[in-house]
Design a protein around this nucleic acid. Structure first.
Length: 484
RNA sequence: CGGGGUGUAGCGCAGCUUGGCAGCGCGCUUCGUUCGGGACGAAGAGGCCGCCGGUUCAAAUCCGGCCACCCCGACCA
């Protein structure tokens, strides 16, 4: 195959094609047998596992406990909370038969677990002493999607869903913000995304929530990706499921609940945020292999090089670096270089007879930001572990900085409609809005942009709506952008 | 559901207009030479041409019907 046919489609041509091609070619996923289903391959799953471990640690460190609830939910549970059913009805998979017979009451396959967990919480909570109840579940969920996209929107996906119950609205809101903080920290520190935490406008709220918070990431085509959400339910679900407690004064009170989730979608965010024409670029924190050693040599030298590569790998692994030796015999070094670049490995070490003689390895960085001249560098073998440990930290920080710079360069604070339309074509606009649904709809119809969030960090401002001139509703600027 | 497209080897495709032995590239198998940026040669294996029906001496190709998938919207993490 010709060289240009093997490289990934340049993102300037068609970002979606680039992305689709890459997730298959880098062996992250395969298509499942059913429309919209996704098979996550070992290399892709490892990325998720690394993120999962990080997030799980943060959740447990704050007093939450993991639990597991059933996949099948009686249809009647879903129907308890009016807005919740209405919101999820179009996406539900329903099980109507079991044991060869039609069921009296159909089950739905969970699209999310608020209802079944609410049902159980009602049984588990009776006193203020039972509160707060802080639960988390790692699970798969299923939603029928009209247009699937690998990781970003597949029928079945993996996620973490936190569900908590509290005595007061203040406690529940504090929990909502705590969870949002987990997501922001994981997104920035592990995934090196430049996410913006903020609140959703009423039209974008979760079905049944009083307030919905989000972290919004910007992809390299300027579009926004909701990368984690945290919901304050008020007493909506407590009312629907009878989640009540007896207060210190002996009165029956409704609980205030929250729910929050982060999914495998985040893997898609990593790909679309950091990837380039050569393929994936993985932040070291989420890279299945942080360093790949490519042994080079033939004949008698091959054995020597192989032994040295194995020894180097052992040294690096002892230093906590995820290291892989690519000893596939039938492939040329050049092929391996390109292969691992496509798979996003942060650092490559070339090890051949010349290097062995000099006591060095040739280090190559997957991406150089703001230092295009940085090429390969020979590093002493005895200092390799120390050097790479530092390089990995720097690489992680570099990616986060690059993402933040990109977001900054593609975000325009504006009070002018022409500027607004231009800004949302290539990125985000920070603008004031009246908060009316009809006005949001008009903006969407004209520009395909929607309100992504009201950033928490925004300064109070009173001005008038970018579109219709009515007074601003939120007293802060709203991020508008086209969303995935 | 609306608009556009595609179904031929594991993957990517040509062949169809004008009917006549099922093809190409990659990958795979074997052997040899290679190996510091996507190696090369030789020899092989691999097919219900999406499905059903029709026309014809003869259908991947023409006609009718059906099915599936992909892309752009609407729904959504």
């Amino acid at each position: 195959m010709a060289r240009d046919e093997r490289s990934v489609t340049p993102q300037s041509d068609d970002f979606s094609a680039w992305y689709n091609d890459l997730v298959f070619r880098a062996e992250l996923v395969d298509r499942g047998p059913v429309r919209g289903s996704m098979v996550i391959r070992p290399y892709g799953y490892r990325i998720w596992e690394l993120l999962q471990a990080d997030l799980d640690g943060r959740i447990k460190a704050t007093g939450h406990q993991n639990a597991y609830f059933p996949l099948l939910i009686p249809q009647s549970y879903m129907e308890r909370e009016a807005e919740h059913v209405e919101g999820f009805a179009p996406e539900l998979f329903t099980v109507t038969h079991a044991g060869g017979k039609e069921l009296e009451e159909p089950f739905v396959i969970r699209p999310t677990s608020e209802t079944i967990i609410g049902e159980m919480m009602a049984k588990w909570i009776s006193s203020h002493r039972d509160l707060p109840l802080l639960l988390n579940q790692w699970a798969n969920v299923l939603r029928w999607e009209l247009r699937p996209r690998m990781f970003l929107r597949t029928s079945e996906f993996l996620w973490q869903e936190g569900h908590t119950a509290h005595a007061t609205a203040e406690d529940a809101l504090a929990e909502t913000m705590l969870a949002l903080g987990f997501y922001q920290d994981v997104a920035v520190e592990a995934a090196a995304l430049a996410t913006v935490p903020g609140e959703k406008t009423p039209g974008e709220r979760f079905a049944g929530a009083e307030r919905t918070f989000t972290i919004e990431a910007m992809m390299r085509d300027g579009r926004a990706l909701q990368s984690g959400t945290s919901h304050f339910m008020g007493t909506n679900f407590a009312t629907a499921f009878g989640i009540t407690y007896t207060s210190e004064s002996g009165a029956a009170e409704l609980c205030h609940t929250t729910s929050w989730g982060m999914s495998t979608r985040i893997v898609g965010a990593v790909i679309m945020t950091h990837g380039d024409d050569k393929g994936l670029v993985l932040p070291p924190a989420l890279a299945p292999y942080q360093v790949v050693i490519v042994p080079i040599g033939r004949g008698d030298q091959a054995d020597q090089v192989a032994a040295a590569a194995a020894e180097l790998a052992t040294t690096l692994r002892a230093a906590g670096i995820r290291t892989h030796v690519d000893d596939r015999p039938q492939l040329s070094p050049g092929f391996k270089f390109n292969d691992w670049e496509m798979r996003g490995v942060p650092f490559r070490l070339e090890l051949g007879p010349r290097d062995l003689a000099a006591g060095t390895a040739l280090m190559s960085r997957r991406l150089n930001y703001q230092q295009p001249d940085a090429g390969k560098e020979a590093i002493p073998l005895e200092a390799a572990a120390e050097r790479l440990t530092a390089e990995l930290i720097a690489f992680q920080a570099m990616l986060a900085q690059r993402a933040a710079d990109f977001r900054g360069e593609h975000t325009l604070r504006t009070d002018s409609w022409p500027e607004f339309t231009a800004a949302v074509a290539t990125g985000w606009a920070l603008a004031l809005h009246c908060g009316e649904q009809a006005c949001e709809d008009e903006i969407k119809a004209e520009t395909t942009a929607t309100p992504r969030c009201i950033p928490l960090a925004g300064e109070p401002e009173q001005w008038t709506c970018i579109r219709c001139g009515k007074p601003s509703a939120y007293g802060k600027r709203v991020i508008f952008g086209r969303a995935y």
